[in-house]
């Protein structure tokens, strides 16, 4: 009885593993089809059209989906052929995709690196094949900067600074101390470190502005709410909340309401990102200011691709065109938001 149980187990496990492998293999097959948009029959650049090979990290968030759509749409608008590949969060998929692009002799390769390191070999191959490379959204740590032409993406320090500068202007009339609480992103992450730094630099302009408490809310709504609840109890007078993303700010809204205060009036709320729910809160008067972290870098990417193909000089670092929103601007912009 027990023995058959064990053999069954082994067989069951084996069968499950086999099924798993099969599924993985199938997904891999589907994934390696880099044809994407446009006619996959023509091999790169044959018909005079600019051909761009783009490898995306994956589809882990709404922000990323908007990023993908922006790149696809602007390529179609510019009349370029886009060979799109989804790396599903795996570096080996991305390296394979880049090698495919090299073989297909595309005009420009662009990609959002899954991780920072380990790109030297494949980037060298692209360089030898004389195909220019553009990094989007995330950087690589290669010592040899000639391996890629440029890096386009958000500047997190600047986002923090924009948030801080708005606050300095808003509170320029304040005579007494202004108490600020800060909801940080995931401890140690680049956006959390940089946004904190940029904000601190900006508010140093006015000694009345003081961060009285700063804790990590892990970029989540539940985290933001839980931390804000304690901030409210520990600090009787909170004038300003600075959250490193919209979601934490949205969570904090509930804590503020539960404490009997009016968000946006009793407490000035500043966040970063400008996702749809955040913009809605801003338009509703619950947030006061949002510094955008935009995924819509498609048009800029197409422009850069054209320039590097033509051999023009491009800056080594290009910032995504980003803006900021006040309540009035949010009301106007909300109907056209893509994410």
């Amino acid at each position: 009885m027990a023995k058959t149980g064990i053999t069954l187990t082994r067989r069951g496990l084996g069968a499950m593993l086999a099924v798993g492998l099969l599924a993985g293999g199938l997904a891999g097959c589907g994934n390696s089809d880099t044809g994407g948009d446009g006619d996959s029959g023509s091999s790169g650049g044959g018909n005079g059209k600019l051909v761009i090979g783009f490898s995306q990290v994956g589809a882990e968030s709404g922000w990323r989906t908007a990023n993908t759509n922006s790149i696809k749409e602007s390529a179609a608008e510019a009349g370029y052929e886009l060979k799109f590949d989804d790396a599903q969060g795996k570096q080996e998929n991305q390296i394979k995709a880049i090698r495919n692009f090299i073989q297909q002799k595309v005009d420009v390769i662009a990609f959002s690196p899954v991780v920072e390191s380990g790109w030297d070999t494949v980037l060298k191959e692209a360089k030898d094949a004389k195909i220019p490379v553009i990094l989007t959204d995330r950087a690589v740590d290669s010592a040899d900067k000639s391996l890629y032409k440029t890096f386009i993406g958000s500047d997190f320090v600047k986002e923090g600074r924009l948030a801080g500068e708005w606050l300095v202007k808003e509170k320029s009339a304040a005579t007494g101390p202004v108490n600020i609480v800060e909801l940080q992103g995931t401890t140690g992450s680049a956006p959390a470190n940089d946004r904190k730094k940029g904000f601190a630099e900006a508010i140093a302009a006015n000694p009345n502005l003081k961060v009285v408490a700063s804790q990590s809310g892990d970029f989540t709504r539940a985290g933001g709410k839980q931390v804000m609840e304690q901030f409210l109890k520990a600090n009787p007078k909170i004038d300003v909340l600075f959250a490193h993303n919209d979601d934490m700010g949205l969570g904090a809204l509930e804590a503020i309401t539960a404490a009997g205060k009016t968000p946006g009036k009793d407490i000035t709320i500043i966040t970063i990102d400008a996702v749809k729910d955040g913009m809605q809160a801003l338009a509703d008067g619950k947030f006061n200011f949002i510094a955008e972290c935009s995924p819509l870098l498609g048009p800029q990417l197409m422009d850069l691709a054209k320039k590097v193909k033509a051999g023009e000089e491009v800056p080594a670092r290009v910032e995504t065109e980003e803006t900021t929103f006040t309540q009035e601007q949010a009301k106007a912009a909300l109907p056209n938001r893509k994410y």
Partner: peptide, 14 residues
């Protein structure tokens, strides 16, 4: 409870 706490469901975080 976790999703009702913040009136939203985040597949990554809940």
């Amino acid at each position: 409870m976790m999703t009702a706490n913040v009136s939203s469901a985040d597949g990554n975080a809940v």
